[in-house]
Design a binder for these strands. Structure first.
Lengths: 201, 201
DNA sequence: CATTATATCTAACAGTTGTTAGGTTGTCAA
DNA sequence: TTGACAACCTAACAACTGTTAGATATAATG
């Protein structure tokens, strides 16, 4: 791993714990083992370290989104198909992916007092997930797996416990294997319960 | 309003927008109209401004909690009784109360990189609300208003949409009357729906 | 009137912040 | 061997941070 990647890696790690503003260039450099001025050889300024991280995140997240939609249309419309797509794409590759999780933590912390950050936080942790979850419901309604209903409230009923569990297990404290397991158990149980109540087959 | 109260008021207002660490003593003083050193006549240091605000918050919040529990046991066990207690105590006097809302925003922001703050954030925005909501369910089960079920998951099903709506409407952006109304509409609708599905009378 | 307490001020401290100018290596092509 | 470039360094800058010592003004008390 070259110096630029080391800087990005260390920065993200510290940003995710304490926030962008709380971490200084000197903190990062101490950890990487270089002097402050060397950072400015690789990056224009402190902000552009964060920009680079966000850019990489959006690329990955957009990939996940397309994979998600493909997974839904490719499936045979069974319950386990929809379930697996959610679990693989949205849970494992997004919420619990080490890199994505850290970037989302930075968004979570830095959304206050930074309008740009609040915008992308809203986009990637509230609107898009809700939109994704509602597309699952719609797909399964089309396939006749569950009965139709108020699709907006349906999406909230579906997503909000996941959002709650994610905040509890994935975005506070450390992202340990125990916390991941606790999240999976709660979230899986909720999804199964949701589909059962909706008349899922 | 004397100077000490002005300092508290201004500090809370700025802390709630940008976070405790992001706001400097000089920022506060500029707004209040005093010099930096005057703050140290009224407070030991910057931290004790925050401590005072948190103390006042916990007093109010604990009051709300007792009022809540009294409201539940006093009621006749009808749906509207439980509904009104939740709406009055938990929504109006807590989540949407100007002072409480601001303090909770500070907790929300400052929970990262501050272990004490994370502890009280968890207590007042995750554990206690969940505990309160589950006591509503239990009370209404006792009164025979709704049917019994898995009480832990029941509480999550009940509370998580409220938590979701609160994060969307009450804890991001400004706490305007429009946002309050939007929250009320969504949350009330959810509560009614929840009780209907649970077999409420 | 003299004293005391309250509330504010001026001015500075030591430390931290992001950033930059300019010097020092090491590597590779001409 | 010379020159060019990449990758790093030393050392400092101006601005900002929480905090303090000590002076000053106002009002209440003896």
């Amino acid at each position: 791993m070259n110096t630029k990647e080391k800087i990005l890696d260390t920065s993200l790690d510290m940003f995710a714990r304490l926030g962008y503003t709380a971490v200084s260039i000197r903190d990062i450099c101490k950890q990487v083992g270089i002097k402050e001025s060397s950072v400015y050889y690789h990056f224009k300024n402190k902000q552009s370290i964060l920009d680079e991280l966000i850019n990489r995140f959006t690329t990955i997240a957009n990939n996940m989104m397309s994979q998600f939609e493909n997974g839904l249309t490719d499936g045979q419309g069974s319950f386990s198909d929809g379930f697996n797509v959610v679990a693989d794409c949205f849970f494992e590759q997004y919420l619990m992916d080490e890199f994505c999780n850290k970037v989302m933590r930075v968004m979570l912390i830095e959304q206050f007092g930074n309008d740009d950050m609040r915008t992308i936080y809203k986009e990637w942790l509230l609107d898009k997930p809700l939109q994704i979850q509602s597309s699952v419901s719609k797909a399964l309604i089309n396939f006749g797996v569950i009965e139709s209903g108020d699709s907006e409230y349906l999406a909230v009923k579906y997503y909000s416990p996941i959002y709650f569990y994610a905040n509890k297990w994935l975005f506070s404290g450390e992202l340990t294997e125990e916390n991941k397991t606790a999240f999976r158990e709660s979230a899986y149980k909720h999804i199964q319960n949701f589909f059962m109540e909706m008349g899922g087959k």
